[in-house]
Structure formats: C-alpha cells, structure tokens
C-alpha cells in the first residue's frame, strides 16, 4: 500500500492510495456531510447524495464516499455548486423526515442537525412538499423502538445487520416513497429474528432506531 499526498481545501494530507476520499477527509478533520457511509463497508451505496466534492480535472462534482484517492489529487469541499447539491439533497431528505427535534431522543446527536448546521440550512425546509410517511411506531422490541417515519433510508442498519453481524433481519422493502426498512413480511421487530446486538441502533444517524432506555 503506497502512501500518497493530496490536497483537500488547500490542506496537504497523507493517505493510503485507494482509500476513499470521504474517510481521508474526515480523518484529517475536514468535515464532508454524509449519512449512508460506514468506514467498514468496502463498497458504499452512495445513496444519501450528501458527500459531494469538487475534484480538479473533473467536470462535475462527485461523491467522496466512493472516490478513491490518488497522488496529487486536488479536492475542494465547499464550492458553490457542491453546497447547492448538498443543500438540495438535505432538503429532499427533510421533506420525508418529521422535524420534531425537541421531542426526539436523538436531539443534539442527530446527523441531520449536524449537516444542517454545516450547510447553514434550516431543518424546517419550505421549498419541497412534506411527504412524511405517518406510519405507526414499532415499539415491540425489548431493546429499542423503531420509528419508520424518521428513517432516512441510509441503509446503515441493514448493512451492519447483514454483513457485519451476519444476521440479515433488516431489509428494504417496497419502492419509491413507500420504501421502508423492515423485517420479513413487515413483522414487528420484536417478533423478528434478532440477536439483540444493538448495532443497528448504534449506526442509525437519526432518531429512527433508538434504545428504549435512552428515550427521555
């Protein structure tokens, strides 16, 4: 593994060739908004569309989570077009996410709050129509509760459940706006095969999966 140098926002950093740009930046205290990425995951989904960056020599912004670094790479994280893409991606996510931070167990630890602050965007977006799901909260599990309405469909919980824990209980189901994270047949999570590892709750970036003892 070769060590290489690249420039992110005028700062020269060292990295291992082939590492994903997002992690190189984050390791060097350069924040790039992100939701769906997990460092352990070799091939990210790149589904949240938040980690946009501009790379010199590339005509359009790219997502940092699946962009391998190379020697001499020049990256800019805060260009106007990058920020615009990120703001729009955040607005799209927020148009399906009930903003009720005061009563949310994840308040002040929520990735959406962090991203909104970074982008100087309001959490109550007004540009897009609100299409929150209004599904019932599943509190059947003894360890945690699951609010599908707050879910941003990043897929982190699904990945740790299947690939890291080799359990494979959580999955995406349905399509488009109806898409949800669920167990087989849409069964309540308390009745699903679960090893109680709690990893899905730990990786949830928002207040969708939340430990019961942390609530209130």
């Amino acid at each position: 593994m070769k060590t290489i140098t690249l420039t992110i926002d005028e700062k020269t950093v060292e990295a291992t060739e082939g590492e994903m740009l997002l992690w190189v930046a984050l390791d060097n205290d350069i924040y790039i908004p992100n939701l769906c990425a997990l460092k352990a995951r070799p091939l990210p989904d790149a589904n949240c569309r938040l980690c946009w960056v501009d790379i010199e020599g590339r005509s359009a912004p790219v997502t940092a989570c699946n962009e391998p670094v190379y020697n001499g790479m020049v990256v800019k994280t805060g260009t106007e077009r990058v920020v615009r893409l990120q703001q729009t991606a955040l607005e799209l996510i927020l148009s399906t996410h009930p903003v009720d931070c005061g009563r949310c167990g994840k308040n002040k630890r929520c990735e959406l709050q962090k991203i909104a602050r970074h982008l100087r965007t309001k959490l109550k977006q007004k540009r897009l129509r609100d299409i929150s799901k209004r599904l019932p909260i599943d509190s059947s599990h003894s360890l945690f509760s699951y609010d599908p309405n707050k879910c941003v469909l990043c897929g982190r919980c699904i990945w740790v459940c299947k690939e890291e824990q080799k359990v494979g209980t959580l999955h995406f189901a349905y399509r488009g706006f109806a898409m949800v994270v669920t167990a087989f047949g849409g069964a309540p999570l308390g009745e699903a095969d679960c090893t109680m590892c709690g990893r899905c709750v730990e990786v949830c970036p928002v207040g969708s999966l939340i430990f019961k003892n942390a609530e209130k």
Binding site: G168, L170, H171, A173, R175, T182, F184
Partner: peptide, 25 residues
C-alpha cells in the same frame, strides 16, 4: 410468505431479502 421463505433458504439468502424483491416489483 411461506414460499418466500422456501426460496430464501434454497438460495441461502435472508428471507427479508426475498421479501424486499417481491415488494419492490
């Protein structure tokens, strides 16, 4: 749903994945 489980064990994939595909299309 029992057929989904049967197919899942045949393909050695989690049943939830079969459910996901069946509800997607």
């Amino acid at each position: 749903q029992p057929a989904m489980k049967q197919v899942a064990s045949f393909l050695a994939v989690p049943a939830g994945e079969v459910f996901g595909v069946a509800t997607f299309y």
